[in-house]
Design a protein around this nucleic acid. Sequence first.
DNA 1: CAGGAATGCAAGCAACCACTTGCTTTCCCT
DNA 2: AGGGAAAGCAAGTGGTTGCTTGCATTCCTG
Lengths: 208, 208
Amino acid sequence: MDVREQLLEAAVKVFAIAGFRGATTRRIAQEAGVNEVTLFRQFGSKEGLILEAVLRSVERLQDEAVLPTVPANPAAELLDWTTRHFEFVLRNNRLIKAAMADAQSHPDMACIGDRIGTSIEHTLRAYLERLRDAGLCAPDVDIAVASSVLSGVVFADAMGRDVHPQCYPYSAAEAPQRYVTFFLRAIGVRAVAAPDSAPAPEAAVHHG
Amino acid sequence: MDVREQLLEAAVKVFAIAGFRGATTRRIAQEAGVNEVTLFRQFGSKEGLILEAVLRSVERLQDEAVLPTVPANPAAELLDWTTRHFEFVLRNNRLIKAAMADAQSHPDMACIGDRIGTSIEHTLRAYLERLRDAGLCAPDVDIAVASSVLSGVVFADAMGRDVHPQCYPYSAAEAPQRYVTFFLRAIGVRAVAAPDSAPAPEAAVHHG
DNA sequence: CAGGAATGCAAGCAACCACTTGCTTTCCCT
DNA sequence: AGGGAAAGCAAGTGGTTGCTTGCATTCCTG
């Protein structure tokens, strides 16, 4: 494997654990199995390395969770999005925490929050608007609030489950299903109606 | 004002901005308008100071948001709790971010997350259980999920509104009302309360 | 095989860090 | 007024950090 690649991987790893100040060049180089001098020869400075590493790490996983352009099976589609989004935030738990904390003194780091924000904006909220326009949920639902609620509970769970687990008596595996069930009821989506248009991608939701 | 007090206030302030490693003793002392040596004479070490400062700061606000033992007006009571909790997290936005990030390398710092968690556990969730037992909401609501949803959206909004404001087209002032309205509908609480028991829900928020 | 580029290694530099020491000054209490 | 505790001040100590330098080694290519 390339030396640059090893350094980039080690940089995100150490940064997620120790933050910007705690991620020393010696530690990153050791983690990468590379001499510290090579780090500076390749990236010029610690800042250059960490910034490039975090940016690349964010870009790589921008589109893991997607939603269809035209809603067919809200229950299954929202469960799929919620599960993927939840697992993504859970997997990058520490990286997100570190980036959020360092974003103040290091504004370029805010990209990760911005990326997640625009992702939610352009997928979940747009989907919910189409859902409402298609008459598949209650017509008077506040879409912006609904979007914030679903993405918010997913974010809070993924960020806080390890810190205060007493708030989450259900496992991480079943959390998305529970949130989606609650959410569907909140926005007035019927338990699945088998429409004539499209069959259900997954038989995850039982019939009513 | 006491020198200890000045140092404790300066410590939380600087820690919230710069994190544990970034909060140097020189900077804290300067922010407090106190000689650096006094810091060590009073608290022994940087760790002792910051830990005591953060702990005290957390304890101070554990009792800001409360809920009644016996539910009377769910809409007003939940709006009051949500508003106070939201304003608390919003006000301590950066402190929470810094503590979350440093909690990994500094386990004693995790108390802030733990404190918030138990606060939610012992106030909101217990309240919702009583609400259900009193027949004031739908009987089949998943209380743990409902509690996570309301506290989650409040947390996510307060933590992310400054980073990706495009997700929050409504102002911070009206956010609690919107979330509570959405939430009440989700758990099946009727919009009405007895007109003689309490006036408009907004009246319960200010003038405390 | 020759030569240049990339990497490793040892050492070091200036800055900053938490923390200490010795001494002077201020302030409070009787 | 006087004595002791608390605070300020200047200087310094050992350790760490980002980054550099000089040189030996490896590796790839023509």
